[in-house]
Simulated assay, not measured.
Amino acid sequence: MTNADVQKVAAAAWRIRRYALRMGEVQGQGYIGQALGYADVLATAFGHMMNFRPAEPEWEERDRFLLSHGHYAIAYYAALLEAGIIPEEELETYGSDDSRLPMSGMATYTPAMEISGGSLGQGLSIAVGMALGLRQKKNPALVINSMSDGELDEGSTWEAAMSAAHYGLTNLINIVDVNKQQADGDSRKILGFEPLHEKWASFGWYVQRVDGNDLPAVIKAFENAKSWPENQPRVILCDTLMGKGVPFLETRDKNHFIRVDADEWQKAIAVLDANKPEGVL
């Protein structure tokens, strides 16, 4: 990892946040707190880690990114825009009738949307099957499953974790967004999940826990996961701050779906613009 790598990913994360805010303004709503908080992870995945071809979203040897938490679609679409998989002009269609960018991720609508997420706790199980299938076909692609900490409440998540370790799925990386929020409140109080590092390790995974908004740490964690030599699946636990990059949203009371007033979208974009990374035009 070089300084140039970090600067490149930082610029991508800034644009992902800005794209997400612009989409949120189109509909006047969206899971924008998660989008801002998770932008650094998505920028690292698409801008530094993954092997894909923007013009061929179904290329057989592409790395697969599974959005288990389908309500993060606004963040994922922003990453696809940044990656050149979706043209920027489609941004204005977000959440509209006949759009390829529905408000929850659906594989039948959107290029590079590998699964229809949103029924939480399903993504990792699908990822295990996908990783097994790719290994059987001797396909070198990685499977990256992205999930929320709320999905840790689901028993299917832990059955999948046990299966992945049993089969030694070295081609599987699981990312958990530990933002400590779900629909009913603080996810740690709804059903306590700590200590996460020790739990995943006890299931046989190679575990890293990082500040999900510390770009060098996130990049290093992805690199470590990809190069880890042992016969284990890999998990990256990313502690993120909802609303990251827009202070007046960072400090707002979170109830999983941040309320943003009509005049605040442009204010949030102006905050981002005033703090754009060096070298971004």
Rank of each mutant, 00 (worst) to 15 (best):
G245I: 12
L101H: 11
G47D: 05
A43W: 08
I86Y: 05
P111H: 07
S99N: 06
A131G: 06
M49T: 02
V210E: 07
H69S: 03
A141L: 09
A262S: 12
M242W: 01
D153C: 09
L42F: 10
Q29R: 15
A217E: 12
P54W: 07
M113R: 04
E92G: 08
D184V: 11
S146A: 14
V26D: 06
N213V: 12
F222W: 12
G95T: 12
E92I: 11
H48A: 14
G243P: 07
W205F: 09
G192F: 11
R18L: 10
H48L: 05
Q208R: 14
A217P: 03
V271P: 09
V235A: 01
K8S: 15
A221T: 03
T108C: 14
V246M: 13
L152C: 13
K189W: 03
A127Y: 07
S96G: 09
W200L: 10
E223T: 12
R188Q: 15
D186C: 10
G105W: 04
D239Q: 06
G212N: 04
L67R: 05
A201L: 13
M242I: 14
V128D: 05
F65A: 05
F193T: 01
Y31M: 13
A83N: 06
Y76K: 04
E159I: 07
A201E: 14
S156N: 09
K138Y: 00
M49C: 14
M49E: 09
F222Y: 12
D40R: 05
I236G: 02
T251A: 13
L272R: 03
S187Y: 07
N213L: 05
D63H: 00
P140V: 07
E230Q: 15
H166V: 15
S104T: 14
L152G: 00
G30I: 01
I258P: 11
W14S: 02
V6W: 01
G33C: 02
D273G: 08
N139W: 00
L21I: 05
L81C: 03
E92D: 07
H197R: 13
E61H: 12
S99G: 09
A12C: 00
Y109Q: 13
D184A: 04
L169N: 02
S148V: 11
E159M: 04
W205S: 10
A83I: 04
K276L: 02
G245H: 04
F52V: 04
G121T: 13
D153A: 13
F222H: 04
Y76R: 00
M23V: 00
I16Y: 04
A131C: 06
M50N: 01
L36M: 08
M242G: 03
S99V: 08
G30L: 11
N213A: 02
K199A: 12
H71G: 13
S68R: 05
F193H: 05
W228D: 15
E25L: 08
A165R: 05
S116E: 08
A160N: 11
W265Y: 10
A83W: 02
Q122M: 14
P54L: 12
L215W: 08
N139P: 08
I258Q: 11
S125Q: 02
R188G: 14
A10L: 01
M162I: 04
R209V: 10
G192D: 02
